[in-house]
Protein backbone atom coordinates (compact mmCIF):
# COMPACT_ATOMS: atom_id res chain seq x y z
CA UNK A 1 0.00 0.00 0.00
CA UNK A 2 1.58 3.21 -1.10
CA UNK A 3 1.26 6.44 0.86
CA UNK A 4 -0.62 7.80 -2.12
CA UNK A 5 -3.35 5.19 -1.70
CA UNK A 6 -5.94 7.58 -0.15
CA UNK A 7 -5.42 10.04 -3.00
CA UNK A 8 -5.75 7.27 -5.53
CA UNK A 9 -8.93 6.21 -3.81
CA UNK A 10 -10.19 9.79 -3.80
CA UNK A 11 -9.31 10.26 -7.42
CA UNK A 12 -11.08 7.03 -8.26
CA UNK A 13 -14.16 8.14 -6.31
CA UNK A 14 -14.22 11.52 -8.07
CA UNK A 15 -13.81 9.78 -11.38
CA UNK A 16 -16.67 7.43 -10.54
CA UNK A 17 -18.81 10.40 -9.53
CA UNK A 18 -17.99 12.22 -12.73
CA UNK A 19 -18.69 9.13 -14.85
CA UNK A 20 -22.03 9.05 -16.51
CA UNK A 21 -24.21 6.23 -15.34
CA UNK A 22 -25.97 4.01 -17.90
CA UNK A 23 -28.60 1.56 -16.73
CA UNK A 24 -28.84 -1.48 -19.02
CA UNK A 25 -31.74 -3.95 -18.98
CA UNK A 26 -31.02 -6.87 -21.32
CA UNK A 27 -31.76 -10.56 -20.92
CA UNK A 28 -29.21 -11.89 -23.40
CA UNK A 29 -25.93 -12.76 -21.70
CA UNK A 30 -23.69 -12.05 -24.64
CA UNK A 31 -25.49 -8.79 -25.44
CA UNK A 32 -25.17 -7.75 -21.80
CA UNK A 33 -21.47 -8.38 -21.93
CA UNK A 34 -21.03 -6.53 -25.18
CA UNK A 35 -23.01 -3.47 -24.07
CA UNK A 36 -21.25 -3.39 -20.73
CA UNK A 37 -17.81 -3.72 -22.30
CA UNK A 38 -18.51 -1.08 -24.93
CA UNK A 39 -19.92 1.42 -22.46
CA UNK A 40 -17.21 0.83 -19.90
CA UNK A 41 -14.56 1.21 -22.58
CA UNK A 42 -16.15 4.51 -23.47
CA UNK A 43 -15.93 5.62 -19.87
CA UNK A 44 -19.43 5.03 -18.58
CA UNK A 45 -20.51 3.54 -15.31
CA UNK A 46 -22.82 0.62 -16.12
CA UNK A 47 -25.53 -1.11 -14.10
CA UNK A 48 -26.86 -4.37 -15.57
CA UNK A 49 -30.20 -6.03 -15.04
CA UNK A 50 -31.59 -9.15 -16.69
CA UNK A 51 -35.28 -8.46 -16.16
CA UNK A 52 -37.64 -5.58 -15.66
CA UNK A 53 -38.48 -6.54 -12.08
CA UNK A 54 -34.83 -6.79 -11.13
CA UNK A 55 -34.19 -3.43 -12.80
CA UNK A 56 -37.06 -1.80 -10.92
CA UNK A 57 -35.77 -3.15 -7.59
CA UNK A 58 -32.34 -1.74 -8.37
CA UNK A 59 -33.83 1.61 -9.38
CA UNK A 60 -35.73 1.84 -6.11
CA UNK A 61 -32.57 1.50 -4.06
CA UNK A 62 -29.96 3.25 -6.18
CA UNK A 63 -29.52 6.76 -7.48
CA UNK A 64 -31.17 7.57 -10.83
CA UNK A 65 -28.97 6.89 -13.87
CA UNK A 66 -28.16 9.27 -16.71
CA UNK A 67 -29.52 7.02 -19.44
CA UNK A 68 -31.40 3.76 -19.92
CA UNK A 69 -30.59 1.11 -22.51
CA UNK A 70 -33.51 -1.32 -22.67
CA UNK A 71 -34.20 -4.52 -24.54
CA UNK A 72 -37.84 -5.01 -25.48
CA UNK A 73 -38.64 -8.72 -25.54
CA UNK A 74 -37.65 -10.24 -22.21
CA UNK A 75 -39.14 -12.92 -20.02
CA UNK A 76 -41.77 -11.40 -17.74
CA UNK A 77 -42.47 -7.75 -18.32
CA UNK A 78 -41.29 -6.12 -21.51
CA UNK A 79 -38.93 -3.20 -21.92
CA UNK A 80 -41.86 -1.15 -23.23
CA UNK A 81 -43.59 -1.73 -19.92
CA UNK A 82 -40.50 -0.56 -18.04
CA UNK A 83 -40.24 2.50 -20.28
CA UNK A 84 -43.85 3.42 -19.48
CA UNK A 85 -43.18 2.94 -15.77
CA UNK A 86 -40.08 5.13 -16.03
CA UNK A 87 -42.05 7.85 -17.81
CA UNK A 88 -44.68 7.77 -15.07
CA UNK A 89 -42.10 8.10 -12.31
CA UNK A 90 -41.34 11.61 -11.16
CA UNK A 91 -37.67 11.05 -10.52
CA UNK A 92 -36.98 9.07 -13.68
CA UNK A 93 -39.28 10.62 -16.25
CA UNK A 94 -36.69 12.98 -17.74
CA UNK A 95 -33.98 10.36 -18.16
CA UNK A 96 -33.44 9.41 -21.81
CA UNK A 97 -34.30 5.86 -22.87
CA UNK A 98 -32.63 3.97 -25.74
CA UNK A 99 -34.21 0.73 -26.95
CA UNK A 100 -32.04 -2.02 -28.42
CA UNK A 101 -34.27 -4.68 -29.93
CA UNK A 102 -34.24 -7.27 -32.64
CA UNK A 103 -37.77 -6.19 -33.56
CA UNK A 104 -36.86 -4.63 -36.86
CA UNK A 105 -40.08 -3.35 -38.33
CA UNK A 106 -40.83 0.30 -38.74
CA UNK A 107 -43.90 -0.05 -36.60
CA UNK A 108 -41.78 -1.44 -33.76
CA UNK A 109 -39.66 1.69 -33.85
CA UNK A 110 -42.75 3.89 -34.01
CA UNK A 111 -44.36 2.14 -31.06
CA UNK A 112 -41.20 2.16 -28.94
CA UNK A 113 -40.65 5.88 -29.57
CA UNK A 114 -44.32 6.42 -28.76
CA UNK A 115 -43.70 4.96 -25.30
CA UNK A 116 -41.33 7.83 -24.60
CA UNK A 117 -37.99 6.52 -25.86
CA UNK A 118 -35.37 8.84 -27.36
CA UNK A 119 -33.77 6.35 -29.74
CA UNK A 120 -34.28 2.90 -31.20
CA UNK A 121 -31.46 0.59 -32.26
CA UNK A 122 -32.15 -2.58 -34.21
CA UNK A 123 -30.06 -5.60 -33.29
CA UNK A 124 -27.54 -6.42 -34.49
CA UNK A 125 -25.94 -3.02 -34.43
CA UNK A 126 -22.38 -1.85 -34.89
CA UNK A 127 -20.62 -0.92 -31.64
CA UNK A 128 -20.20 2.61 -32.91
CA UNK A 129 -23.93 2.95 -33.48
CA UNK A 130 -24.66 2.20 -29.83
CA UNK A 131 -21.96 4.54 -28.60
CA UNK A 132 -23.07 7.32 -30.93
CA UNK A 133 -26.64 7.07 -29.73
CA UNK A 134 -25.59 6.94 -26.08
CA UNK A 135 -23.30 9.96 -26.56
CA UNK A 136 -26.04 11.82 -28.29
CA UNK A 137 -28.64 11.33 -25.61
CA UNK A 138 -26.73 11.09 -22.34
CA UNK A 139 -27.05 14.27 -20.32
Amino acid sequence: MTPLFPFVCLAHAIETLAMKHVFVVEDGHAEQKMIEALLKQAGFQVTLSSSVDEAWDKLQSGSPPDLFVLDIVMPGKSGLELCRTIRENEQLQDIPVVFCSSKSEEFDRFWAMRQGAQAYLVKPYAPKELLDVVYQHVK
Partner: peptide
Protein backbone atom coordinates in the same frame (compact mmCIF):
# COMPACT_ATOMS: atom_id res chain seq x y z
CA UNK B 1 -44.48 -9.20 -28.41
CA UNK B 2 -44.02 -10.18 -32.03
CA UNK B 3 -42.45 -7.88 -34.62
CA UNK B 4 -44.39 -5.10 -36.23
CA UNK B 5 -47.74 -3.52 -35.68
CA UNK B 6 -49.31 -6.61 -34.10
CA UNK B 7 -46.50 -6.66 -31.54
CA UNK B 8 -47.17 -3.02 -30.71
Amino acid sequence: LSDGAVGA
